[in-house]
Each structure stands twice: as C-alpha cells, then as structure tokens.
Simulated scan of single mutants.
Amino acid sequence: MKTVFALAAIVIASSAGVRALPQQPEARAAVDDATILNYALTLEHLENAFYAGALAKFDEKAFAAAGLPPWARGRFVQVGKHEQQHVEFLSAALGDKATKPCEYKFPYTDPKSFAALSQVLEGVGVSAYAGAAQFITNKDYLTAAASVLSTEARHASWVAAAVNRVAGWSGAFDVPLGLNEVYTLAASFITSCPSSNPALPVKAFPALALQPAAPKPGQRTTLKFDVSGVDKSTKLYAAFYTGLDKKFAEIQNNQVTVPAGLEGNVYAVVSKSSGPALTDEDVVAGPAILQFNFDSQGRALS
C-alpha cells in the first residue's frame, strides 16, 4: 500500500535530530520494572493521543469520503478506547511515578493516511512490547504486558487486513525491537514533554532514509544517513530485521541491495557489524520502517 510506504518514509525523515523525551546518556537509570512500565506508558500516551486527535478531527462522513468501509471509524473508536484503558492501567500501577503525556505531531492529513499511520504505529507497538519483555522481572507485570501485547497485535492485524487490505501478519514471528530503536521511532512524533517526567534510559539514533522509500526485495536502494561520526575505513552494513532474524547487506557508496525473501513489517538499520549479535553500540543510524506486502499465495505485491 503506497500510503503506508509514504508515511513510513515521513516517520523516519522527521526523526532527524529529535531528542524530545528526557534522556541521560552519560548516567542512565537502571532498567527496572518501573522504568519499563514508564517506557510502555510513554508509548501508550502517544497512541492514545493519536487516536483521540484523529477521531475528533474526522467524522463518519470524512471516513466515507476517503473510501474507507462504513464500519471503520467505529472500530477505530474501539481501538482508541483500548489505548486509553492501557494508559489508565499503567498510570494506576505506577502511581505518582507515572510519566505524563507529551505534546505530539502526527503526519496524517485525512482518514486514509490516518489508517495507514495506524498500521505503522500498531506494528511498532507490537515490536516494542516484544523487545521489552526481557527486562520485566515481576511475573504479574509480565502477564499484564503480554495481555497488552496481544491486544496491540490484534489492532495491527485488523487495520492491516480489514482496512488497508494487506496481510495481517509478517510471518511466523514479529520483530522485537530494542528500547533505543523504539525510542528513535517514537521521538519523531513528539514535540515536547513535561520536564517533570522520569528520565528514560534511552537515546535516539541518527535518522535513516531510503531512496526509493519503498524498495522491493532485490532492488538497489540508496541510504541517506549521517556518516560524520564514522571512520571512513569502517565497513558498514544494512541490517534488515525480519521476525527473529536479521539479514545483512554490505553498503557500498551509500547503496545496498535489499535482500530477497523479506515479507511484511521489516526494520532496517545501518550497522558496523554483520553478526547476529548486533548491539546498540553497532548501530550507526535507523531504524527505517519498510513494508513488503504479499498476496494469499505468498507472492510479493507491487
């Protein structure tokens, strides 16, 4: 779906230089259960604001004029209520330690671009919860997080398949993203946050953009990112996160060939390593969001 591709490109392009959330890279706070709950609450605040703002702006007539199904807005209202309940649940668990909502800016212009961006955000939410699960020690919190994760996955699947008419899954596994990778994506929507919010142990990576923004597997694409802090002798690779795996391609003259066999939601970063144990220290830029749609026979769609 071209709208999804275009919005994914906007998300990454607009993240350059963003440092909206509190962060302390020199002396990071410990990643304990309260930190992870506030990390999750930060994302839920964002999603809650996203749905509340768009649904207040676009009525049923606007959805119909955009060519969306007549039941779509009502379902989005239900999704928005879920996100509001997630905010209330996490806020109650954290009490006076709970982070407060920030100010946001979302690049939708009509119900159709809102639906496309919903698919992107829900996919990032799924990857965020999957990646953060390893840090939770309290089993009750872990169970609650799993419950939220499965609901976010239902949202992502519904908006992809029923509204945007693409596959509701990427394969047998979703991509778990690290805290900094999710923060990089979320920060592109945040313009400012209350100074009293607890600092999160995260940092944003430099932005990564692809040209064309929606390449196909096997296609040559140009990568745009800041190389000022990288030694010219360092080999760089594009790492494509797909499910629980990573596919690597060496970057030459800022260009790379997209690996074959990629399906669904894929995240790309520029890395100094081509090994599966890639760490945050290896990441030079990204992630960028890519979507490789396929039909019911598993064939790639243009």
Rank of each mutant, 00 (worst) to 15 (best):
T3M: 13
V4H: 14
F5P: 08
L7N: 12
A9N: 06
I12E: 11
Q23I: 02
P25C: 02
D33Q: 05
L37P: 00
A40N: 01
L41T: 02
N48Q: 08
Y51C: 07
A52G: 05
A54T: 01
L55A: 11
A56M: 06
A62D: 00
A64Y: 00
W71F: 08
R73S: 08
R75K: 15
F76E: 05
V77F: 01
V79M: 09
H82Q: 15
Q84T: 14
H86Q: 12
F89T: 15
G95R: 01
G95C: 02
K100T: 09
K100L: 14
P101C: 04
C102D: 14
C102V: 06
F106K: 11
D110I: 01
D110L: 05
S113T: 15
F114C: 10
V124P: 13
G125E: 04
V126P: 10
Y129S: 05
T137N: 15
T143E: 14
H155V: 00
A162D: 15
V175N: 04
G178Y: 02
E181V: 06
V182P: 07
Y183H: 09
I190H: 02
S192Y: 05
S195C: 07
L200Y: 09
L208I: 02
A209C: 12
A214P: 07
R220F: 07
K224G: 10
D226Q: 07
D231E: 10
K235T: 04
L236R: 08
L244R: 15
A249C: 07
E250N: 11
E250W: 12
Q252E: 06
V256S: 04
V258L: 05
E263Y: 15
Y267L: 11
A268Q: 01
V270K: 02
S274H: 08
G275W: 01
D295Q: 04
S296Q: 15
G298E: 07
L301G: 14
